[in-house]
Computed example of a mutant assay.
Amino acid sequence: MRIINPRIKLRHLVSFWEVARLRSVVNAADTMNISQPAVSKTIKELEEILGNDLFDRTRRRLTLTPFGEVFFRYTATSLSALRQGIDAAQGGEQRLLLKIGALPTVSALILPDAVRKLTEGGSGLRTRIITGPNDYLLSLLRTGDVDLVIGRMARPDDMLGLSFEHLYFERVVMAVRPGHPLLSVEEFHPGMVEPYQILMPTPDSVIRGLVEQMLLAQGVTELRDEIETVSNAFGRSYIRQTDAVWMISQGVVARDVEEGLIALLPIDMSDTIGPVGFTTRTDQVPEVTTSGFMQAVREVAALQR
């Protein structure tokens, strides 16, 4: 068996992982509660040991080199395996735990029925559901902190070492309160939203680029008092109290629309349609509990097609 270079320490791998995941030395230092120079020094040491640059420092945003992308994949796998080994050595969980990363649209539309299907037999399975931006969930997937992610397919650059299984297509909608002034306009067009507050997805969300492109194509160039949020609770509450327009995935508000609590502006949003499905790691075979959950999700998602 080939011996690992003894100069490579755990701190090297953790520091590299955090910088690569967050694309920022400053943010990585804050996460690890150490100084920025210490992180930079650790990364430089690792690059010297490996004999290759891990990051391309010529660009405005810190990005991985091709060598760094490969090393990033194996670092994620190694850290995940180490964490699982420690858990096993310490006795692990007494009950099975399924960890699911889900974008808000899936949490609202698909997960309730899927989790009910999975747990109604009283198997004793514990289910942990974690929501957040796509980049955050994919980072948890790479480290093994979630077993799979359900949501929109990520950008190609973010799919290294990951695979995607399509379930259904979903579009973005313009959601407003019932009785909103724009609902009574005879010939509505997107430019009419400019005088109103707009709730937009955050820049790191998968749908942000689609929304911006759609608005630009429709001639909407100025947004008044734009609010960026990924909080469904805030968005739902805010538009019901104001005349704001909420750009949001259809699945998040589907039930609210059915119940008459939220209305949709009459506009063709087909340009924002994108695939929703499972994202898993290519180097892992799903366990029995994970496979059972995925099948439950497939059955529920089939009703959305």
Rank of each mutant, 00 (worst) to 15 (best):
F71G: 03
F72T: 04
V173F: 02
I262V: 15
G161A: 09
Q284V: 13
S78C: 04
K117T: 12
V193C: 04
V300N: 07
R23F: 03
V285S: 13
L98Q: 12
R236N: 04
E194G: 03
G85L: 08
R2H: 12
V39M: 12
V172M: 11
T77C: 01
V176P: 02
S163D: 08
T63I: 14
S35G: 12
L141A: 07
R126T: 10
V211Y: 01
T127D: 00
T127R: 00
N52E: 15
S24Y: 12
M1S: 13
M153L: 08
A217K: 15
F293C: 08
R128A: 08
A114V: 13
V252I: 15
G121D: 15
S15Q: 02
L109A: 14
R83K: 11
L109W: 13
R11H: 13
V252Y: 04
R95H: 10
L160H: 11
S15D: 09
G124Y: 09
R11L: 02
A244K: 05
I86K: 06
S270P: 02
G68N: 00
K44G: 04
L167I: 06
D271F: 07
P104N: 14
L54K: 01
M247V: 12
T127A: 12
P203H: 04
V288D: 13
Y136R: 12
H12Q: 08
A81N: 14
A28Y: 03
W246P: 09
A244G: 09
V185K: 05
R126D: 12
R305V: 14
Q250M: 13
R298C: 01
D256G: 05
L111V: 12
M32L: 15
F72A: 11
T290S: 07
T280P: 01
A217T: 14
E258Y: 04
E222N: 14
T58I: 00
H166I: 03
E186D: 11
N52M: 14
L199E: 08
I4Q: 12
G277C: 08
R73A: 12
R142V: 10
T42L: 06
R142Q: 13
Y74A: 06
A38L: 12
D256R: 04
E48A: 06
G91L: 01
R142F: 02
R155C: 01
F188E: 07
R255N: 02
G179K: 03
